[in-house]
Measured scan of single mutants.
Amino acid sequence: RRKSKRKPPPKKKMTGTLETQFTCPFCNHEKSCDVKMDRARNTGVISCTVCLEEFQTPITYLSEPVDVYSDWIDACE
Rank of each mutant, 00 (worst) to 15 (best):
V35F: 06
K7M: 09
S63N: 06
R39V: 10
N42R: 09
P9S: 14
C24F: 00
V68P: 01
V35D: 00
T23Q: 07
S70Y: 08
V66K: 11
V68A: 04
E64H: 12
K7S: 08
K3H: 14
C48S: 01
E53N: 05
S47M: 12
T20R: 10
R6F: 06
A75Y: 11
L18D: 08
C27Y: 01
S63F: 04
H29C: 09
K3S: 12
I46V: 10
P58A: 13
S47Q: 11
A75F: 12
R41M: 04
D34M: 05
Y69D: 01
D34N: 13
Q21C: 09
P9C: 06
C51S: 01
P25L: 06
E30K: 11
D34P: 14
N28I: 01
T57A: 15
D34H: 06
Q56R: 14
P58S: 07
W72M: 04
P65W: 02
C51Q: 00
R41T: 14
C51L: 00
P65K: 13
R39I: 14
W72K: 06
E19V: 11
R39S: 15
D74N: 11
K36E: 14
F55G: 03
V50D: 10
E30T: 11
S47V: 12
M37H: 00
Q21A: 05
T23V: 10
T15F: 02
R2W: 03
M14P: 10
E64F: 05
P9A: 12
R39L: 08
E30F: 04
K7R: 07
S32L: 09
C76Q: 14
E77G: 15
V45H: 13
Q56D: 07
T43E: 10
P10Y: 03
K3F: 05
I73Y: 09
E53Y: 02
D34F: 04
E19K: 07
G16W: 05
Y61C: 12
F55P: 00
P58L: 07
R39G: 05
I59Q: 03
F55D: 01
L52K: 11
H29S: 13
K7L: 08
D38K: 02
T43L: 10
K5C: 02
S32E: 12
G16Y: 06
W72P: 06
P10E: 06
K31H: 14
K5A: 05
D34C: 06
Y69S: 02
K5E: 15
C51T: 00
S63W: 04
V35Q: 01
P58W: 06
E53G: 07
E64I: 10
I46P: 01
E19F: 05
E53S: 05
T20N: 09
K11N: 15
K3A: 11
L62C: 07
F55V: 03
I46S: 05
F26R: 14
D67I: 01
C24W: 01
F55C: 12
N42I: 05
T20P: 10
Y69A: 06
L62T: 14
S4H: 04
D38L: 04
C33P: 05
G16C: 07
N28K: 13
F26Q: 07
E30L: 07
L62S: 12
C33D: 03
T17Q: 14
I73D: 00
C24D: 00
K11F: 07
S4V: 10
D34R: 06
L62P: 06
R41Y: 04
C51G: 00
H29E: 12
I73E: 05
N42F: 05
S4W: 05
Y61P: 15
E53D: 03
C27F: 00
A40V: 10
R41P: 03
F26L: 11
E64M: 13
E30M: 01
R39W: 07
K13N: 12
I59A: 04
G16A: 11
R2E: 13
P10N: 04
E19C: 05
L18M: 08
P58E: 06
A40G: 14
W72I: 01
T23I: 10
K13S: 09
S32T: 13
A40K: 15
A75N: 09
T15Y: 06
P65G: 06
K13W: 01
A40Y: 02
K31L: 09
D71S: 07
K13I: 06
R39Y: 07
T20D: 11
M37F: 02
I46A: 09
L18R: 13
D74P: 05
C76P: 04
V66D: 05
K3Y: 08
Y61G: 14
Y61A: 15
D71L: 11
I46F: 03
M14H: 13
R1K: 12
I59Y: 01
T60V: 10
E53F: 02
L52N: 08
